[in-house]
Amino acid sequence: MNLFRLAGDVSHLLAIIILLLKIWRTRSCAGISGKSQILFALVFTTRYLDLLTTFISFYNTTMKVIYIGCSYATVWMIYAKFKATYDSNHDTFRMEFLVIPIAALSLLVNHDFAPLEILWTFSIYLESVAILPQLFMVSKTGEAETITSHYLFALGLYRALYLMNWIWRFFAEGFFDLIAIVAGLVQTILYCDFFYLYITKVLKGKKLSLPA
């Protein structure tokens, strides 16, 4: 465990909690893509199946359980508890356009052709693009609430910090996982445009709105 990885995990946790609290306290999931949240629930479920087979550390297990639990709680709030506030008209990204090609890719490009390994690979590839329905929704409506922007920033920052963790691990331990690195790069690049808007607008106290 190095500082980049810890900071990445904390950033990830913060993003998940910001989103949960935003929905819970405003009693509304307006502006949030339920589809991205379903994809994230699928990411955590397929990646953390090793909870049942492998014990890595107390920290590892605890974080996994929190991520999965919060992820399902978020989906439940969007599709059940606060369903009336869910903006489905603007959440029109087709999930199958991501899930099907990624399922195929994870069968073709993986470290080992074994069920758990393929599901892990699927989760890594899917995570890299799972935010697309949310970004699509923001670009469609042309704006995002400030709290939603904070959520997106923390979520994007997490993988960027993991990239630094992988550079660190390569030099410190000789460890590298090409699947995770390439997917992590793709994931971080998808956020770059948003990072730019966040820094130039939200951090200066303005609401995130896109030029018409």
Partner: peptide, 10 residues
């Protein structure tokens, strides 16, 4: 490779 069988990151 044992490291890959055991994914220790989140």
């Amino acid at each position: 490779d044992e490291d890959l069988e055991k994914h220790d990151e989140l």
